[in-house]
């Protein structure tokens, strides 16, 4: 069977031997003959049947078969490695481990900051729901547009659930005379845009306006407000575009005139 294998894969044995050498490399890093002999004499009493090979690498040899029965390495903890410079013997015996850096006391805020930076590189969403005067506040009317298309959802902002990357907003509206509430994650990539349609007249004296679910305080549909806002925005956009077009045309004319003069 072996011969058959060799015929099929003539370099198969080479691979196995290479793997063996690699394993040895891992077990005995930077092993030298000189150090092996030097350290062996300085060691204290060795338990019977245990032979010390290199540094703190122990191997137990089976007395009958004279083969390695088991082997293990003893690593000193990082604190002792750093303090072991006082005694030369311990220094020699200890395997030099890479010095461990203790993790930060509270890694979660750092993680959240990193994730937010990735999902919101410009910082626009963070600014929109920060605790500042210019930011959106509870009671405002917001509109959320989706990346996948579909109708944008507008509604009164009832509450902001601040939880790092999981920060979400609750919008409430009436669609076809039925109250609908939607939670949106503000750092979601599927949420293409969040816009403030109308600011609340007065600052709400509650953090969460759950009372707006009651018929007495219910705002009803905000579709008219959104429609008016859209109309106004379109007018502004067209007027801006028109003025820009005029300026462009003027610049073009001027450029043409200059070109004509040069030609003359």
């Amino acid at each position: 069977m072996n011969t058959a294998l060799l015929v099929r894969r003539p370099l198969g044995c080479l691979k196995a031997s290479l793997r063996q050498t690699r394993q040895q490399n891992r077990v005995f890093p930077n092993r030298h003959m000189a150090t092996a002999t030097a350290t062996a004499s300085k060691r204290g009493p060795i338990p019977s049947g245990v032979s010390i090979d290199d540094h703190n690498f122990y191997r137990i040899i089976d007395p009958k078969t004279k083969k390695t029965r088991t082997a293990f390495a003893v690593y000193t903890p990082p604190e002792t490695t750093s303090h072991s410079s006082t005694t030369t013997t311990t220094k020699k015996r200890s395997l030099t481990l890479p010095k461990l850096i203790s993790p930060p006391a509270d890694p979660l805020p750092a993680l959240h900051a990193q994730q937010i930076k990735r999902m919101d590189p410009t910082g626009a969403r963070t600014a929109l729901f920060a605790k500042t005067r210019t930011a959106a506040r509870v009671g405002d009317i917001l509109m959320v547009t989706h990346r996948r298309g579909g109708e944008p959802f507008a509604g009164v902002l009832l509450s902001i659930r601040r939880a790092g990357i999981d920060t979400a907003i609750l919008l409430r509206n009436h669609l076809a005379k039925v109250g609908v509430e939607m939670w949106y994650k503000i750092y979601n990539k599927n949420v293409a845009g969040i816009e403030i349609v109308k600011r609340a007249k007065k600052r709400a004296r509650r953090a969460r306006l759950t009372y707006m679910r009651k018929p007495k305080h219910d705002m009803g549909s905000v579709s008219e407000v959104v429609l008016a806002w859209r109309k106004m925005r379109r007018v502004v956009a067209t007027s801006k575009a028109a003025s820009k077009a005029k300026v462009d045309a003027k610049a073009k004319k001027a450029g043409k005139a200059a070109g004509a003069k040069k030609a003359k």
């Binding site: 979400a168 039925v178 109250g179 609908v180 509430e181 939607m182 939670w183 949106y184 994650k185 679910r213």
Partner: peptide, 14 residues
């Protein structure tokens, strides 16, 4: 409330 795959949640009044 019914949650969706993208993390948004919808809730109706009835």
């Amino acid at each position: 409330m019914v949650s969706r795959r993208d993390g948004s949640v919808v809730r109706f009044d009835d």
